[in-house]
Design a protein around this nucleic acid. Structure first.
Lengths: 121, 121
DNA sequence: GACATAGTTCAATATATCTTGAATTATTGT
DNA sequence: ACAATAATTCAAGATATATTGAACTATGTC
C-alpha cells in the first residue's frame, strides 16, 4: 500500500463521526446497515451523515449499494486489515526481539496482535 | 481506548507528511531519530516539520526528549498496537467464521494479522 | 563573549473540512 | 397522479489545518 493511500484511509477514520460510523459497520458486518439506521443509531443528521459517508465510500473503507430507496453500507474489513498490515510493516530495522517487546508492552492480548512483524522475516 | 482518542491518533496519521515521519520512526525503533535527521531524510523544512512533530507528540504516537541541542523522536509502537487492536475489536457481531474469511480476502499473510478478533472470544 | 547550529514560535496566508437548512432526486405506497 | 420516505446535493458560513519566512530560544564551539 502506498503512503498516499494509507494517509487517505487514516483521514477517513480521523473524524469521530466517521470512526463511529465505520466501527458500527464493522460491528454489523457482513450485513451492514442502511444510511437511515446509521443516522438513527448515532444521532447524526442525515445531511451530515451523507457528507461523512461520501468520504468513507471514497476512501474505500465503506461500500454502498442501492436497495430500493435505501442505501446499504458495509465496512470493507479486508481493506482495514491491509492498512493494519501497512502500519506494522518495515518496523524496527529487522530486530524481531524489539517488536516482541513492544507487543508485550502494549498490554494487548497476543491473539489480537500480529504474531510476527515484518522484521521477523 | 475511547473513540475520541482513537480518532485523534488517526488524525495524527492522516497527513502524508506525518505518516511518513511516523513510519520512518517505526523503522528506526527503538533508537529513533533527531528532528534534523527526519527533516533531511524526508525533505521537510524544519519549521513545517516542527508543526507536524507537535501534532504527533500531542497525539502520543511520538515521544520526544532533549538530547543536548537536539530533540530525539521515537515512535510509540505499543500505542500503535493498541489502536490496531481497537480497530479490530467488537467486529462482526460475534461471528468468527466471517472474520476468518475477511482475513483470507485481505491478501495479507496470516502472521501479519491478528490470529483472532474479538468475536472469537 | 561571539558565533554557529538545532529547533521552536509567531504571524500571515492559503486551503480544506465541518455543519446546517433548503432544495432536489429517486423510490414506494395509496 | 399524489403524497410520503430515503437520501443526496447545494450554498453559506464557521472552523481547523497546512505552509512559509522571520524572529526567537537554547545549546555547543572557538
Amino acid at each position: 500500500m502506498k503512503t498516499q493511500n494509507a494517509a487517505r484511509l487514516f483521514e477517513a477514520l480521523s473524524s469521530e463521526a466517521r470512526l463511529e460510523v465505520f466501527r458500527l459497520l464493522v460491528k454489523h458486518a457482513p450485513n451492514g446497515l442502511v444510511a437511515g439506521e446509521i443516522s438513527k443509531n448515532l444521532k447524526i443528521p442525515s445531511t451530515n451523515l451523507s457528507f461523512h459517508l461520501k468520504e468513507l465510500v471514497h476512501s474505500g473503507l465503506v461500500g454502498m449499494e442501492k436497495e430500493g430507496r435505501f442505501r446499504r453500507c458495509r465496512a470493507n474489513v479486508p481493506l482495514m486489515l491491509e492498512v493494519i498490515a501497512y502500519l506494522t510493516s518495515e518496523c524496527c530495522s529487522g530486530n524481531p526481539g524489539q517488536c516482541r517487546q513492544y507487543r508485550a508492552e502494549s498490554g494487548v492480548a497476543p491473539e489480537f496482535l500480529p504474531t510476527r512483524c515484518d522484521c521477523d522475516k
